[in-house]
Design a binder for these strands. Structure first.
Lengths: 124, 124
DNA sequence: TCCCTTACGATACTTTAGGTAAGTAATGGA
DNA sequence: TCCATTACTTACCTAAAGTATCGTAAGGGA
């Protein structure tokens, strides 16, 4: 039995699923894997997310110790988001999703042109 | 560039995230990894999900070719759900989530008693 | 002096996903 | 006759996410 913030889990995969049980958090992690990013950069790269939802999700990830938020006291403002050590350890999770996605598309989708994943993320 | 059902993705991890962008699908996969299950069994094991949501999510997973639904013409009804070949290939994804969850709990949670994951799922 | 720009939000409102509670079908058993 | 069983539906309600607009604070230009 595991406890995280007074919440109870029978199994460690439940802990992970509970943290990433929404639409956006894993996407954000994915985009922070190789480089720290400013708010605006994340917003441009994950273009379907709204500003509001992005700020909410970033705060949630920060409160769960998965990302770090650094504010530079400048004008206009500058806020840089980065993965914490435990956040960086999510790489194998995303990597296995990346590989499964390729297999899924090979079977049920079509491939047109090349894989436009950011270079260096995985050597696949 | 990948296409799945006329939806466009730059990267294969996007395909995966798009399929599992809701609250319940990965939990359902997790519970089907080792054994095929009837509707009622899934409902009892994933006790927080409602009947309605479970049926919706099962139908969505079926339409994406990730689970198979077999109806036995009996009374009372019997419906057995199982993973398709591509569904079974999600094991590494869940396995990496399982491992990350343990690391996360070791750092930010507490462990009380033992891990109550179903035996045989992973030898960790 | 006033207004525009920039980056990171906050706020009010609408839409959609998910939750609650009840009902249905077909059969067998008390 | 009435109830239990299983796998759903259906009508209704709430919470999460999306849309659109506004706020802040410093510097620059007219």
């Amino acid at each position: 039995m595991y406890f995280v913030n007074d919440k109870e889990f029978k199994c460690s995969v439940g802990v992970t699923l509970d943290i990433f049980n929404d639409k956006w958090k894993l996407s954000i992690i994915w985009h922070l894997l190789d480089n720290d990013k400013r708010f605006k950069e994340l917003h441009q790269e994950i273009s379907e997310i709204t500003q509001k939802t992005l700020t909410v999700k970033l705060r949630e990830l920060e409160s769960k110790n998965i990302i770090h938020r650094e504010v530079f006291p400048e004008v206009p403002p500058k806020v840089v988001y980065s993965l914490t050590p435990i956040g960086k350890k999510l790489r194998p999770v995303l990597e296995s999703m990346f590989k499964w996605g390729i297999e899924y598309v090979e079977e049920f989708g079509t491939i047109n042109g090349e894989n436009a994943c950011e270079i260096g993320k995985f050597n696949t």
